[in-house]
Design a protein around this nucleic acid. Sequence first.
DNA 1: AACCCGGGGAG
DNA 2: CTCCCAGGGTT
Length: 349
Amino acid sequence: MSFSERLIAWYRNNKRDLPWRNTNNAYLIWLSEIILQQTRVEQGLPYYLRFADAYPDVKSFANASEDQILKMWQGLGYYSRGRNMLKTAKVVQNEFNGVFPVAYADLITLTGIGEYTAAAISSFSSNEAKAVVDGNVYRVIARYFGVATPINSTSGKKEFQAIADNLLNRDNAGEHNQAMIEFGALQCKPKNPDCPVCPFQSSCYAYQHQKTNELPVKLKKLKIRERFFYFFIIHNKEEILIKRRDNNDIWAGLHDLPSIEFKERTGLEMVFSDPNFNQWFNDKSVIQKTSEEIKHVLTHQRLYARFVHIENFNLNAIEKNGWLKIKKDNLSDYGMPKLIFEYLKNFLN
DNA sequence: AACCCGGGGAG
DNA sequence: CTCCCAGGGTT
């Protein structure tokens, strides 16, 4: 039995009964596919039913206003999908004589329809032999064949598409595609796949090598966190207060200055209303000078720092916060981040 | 190739 | 919290 035959056998026994599967109507299939882009079936289903009821054909959709479409789209997210649908409905109405295309080559020209959606609509509505590759298919292929190429890399997209093309049952493309997607959604799930009852268990690379949790591989888009600091230079003629940093944050174990952090860029008034500030200092008149904002770039964080100069030792605060009172001359005995050390060096010299 | 677009559910 | 979802468009 071929992969596709076994897959389709599984599909016929396990598939969900979904309304867009009971039709060859390309318009309704298009409607469902756009709604389901990056959207779970359970979330999209009620929207599909409302849209199909309000706009039963492409003509009625094309004649709707953008406000009407977006109103019905409300809460689904990715609202450009709704705007693109209206644009495409008008194109179908005007340039395809109101007949929704079923050929991949026509579909791919329409706004909001990419490779996946064009393959889905053409294969579901007219059985055209185009393989779909969505998030489910990436997962199934990566695990079954042990493909570790990142699915969101350019080469990975080509590689997975080629494998899917090769796997496709060209005589039954629509059902094969549905089966791939359904298998990924119900059986070969992202977390806790049902391997114990999987029909592909014995030939699945990931199962045999215990790699289901490592596949597929996806490049992480490193997200850069922004942090905003006020560092306090609390000093007298000879001494200054420093602080050892926590072990579970940047600059673990190094020394910096007493500080207050914000998640957004704020003015000094936010510092003055900060409970710590008011605990440490009597009032804002202790501030003699505040530096310009200094930007400091780390691999996954962007720091924005301002240095606040204060000549006022609150001994009680020193003890409570574990601050260290050291000689300015001894500053270089303490490991400090470049951001802090450079500023102090320039200031003290 | 990187970034943007969203709400929601699962773990 | 993070990850992911029947992805596509723009820069």
